[in-house]
């Protein structure tokens, strides 16, 4: 969209809820703050779910998503309409999420090596599920969430983006900057791993 088109569009009162993401970011680039608020409204839930599942930690996910929006705000002029806006914002959130995971991994390695247990894989502690008090569906959901958390990061992120966020393979490929075939393969292998582990667990 040219600057002239942007200006014309800004001059017309439009219902922001009907605008595409790309139009919203263009309006925001032209200085309309309400468009940014609309973007936040659209993406806050999706991104908190994505990062929250990736980290298995809602509180940190909120901080990361906040930082994602702040980066969009600060770097709004860096967005070019060569990619979908959703790809851009998911890439920012995903990068921040992976940075947090790396930081945690380093912290875990450090704390484990301090205990002299370098040969032992670090596992998220299993506090168990009280079967008697939970309905079957709830147990299954808990188990799946736990298994997602136990997957390697490169499987975890594609599974979340594909099966939880329902993004297309092409978009996942662009967000993660990996070939399409690799995305498909990771999705299948990730699902297979979850299925195997669930069979063992349930």
């Amino acid at each position: 969209m040219t600057d002239l088109e942007k200006t014309k569009e800004l001059s017309v009162s439009v219902n922001l809820k009907e605008c595409s993401d790309e139009v919203l970011i263009a309006r925001f680039q032209a200085g309309e703050l309400a468009s940014f608020e609309e973007i936040v409204g659209r993406y806050q839930g999706q991104l908190i779910n994505f990062v929250g599942r990736l980290l298995s930690d809602r509180i940190t996910a909120e901080d990361i998503v906040q930082e994602t929006f702040l980066r969009v705000y600060r770097n709004k002029h860096r967005y070019k309409e060569i990619a979908k806006f959703s790809t851009w914002i998911y890439t920012i959130a995903g990068n921040l999420g992976r940075t947090e995971l790396r930081r945690r991994k380093i912290r875990n390695i450090f704390s484990i090596s301090q205990r002299g247990e370098t040969e032992i894989d670090y596992e998220i502690p299993d506090h168990g599920i009280n079967v008697e008090k939970q309905v079957e569906g709830k147990i299954r959901q808990e188990s799946i969430l736990k298994e997602i958390g136990n997957l390697p990061v490169y499987f975890r992120e594609v599974i979340i983006l594909r099966d939880v966020q329902d993004l297309s393979y092409e978009e996942i490929s662009q967000i993660l900057k990996v070939p399409l075939g690799t995305v498909k393969s990771r999705v299948n292998r990730g699902r297979t791993q979850i299925q195997k582990r669930l069979k063992n667990r349930l």
Partner: peptide, 9 residues
């Protein structure tokens, strides 16, 4: 692989 995993997810 996804007989029921995807549904659950």
């Amino acid at each position: 692989a996804t007989s029921d995993v995807r549904v659950a997810l």
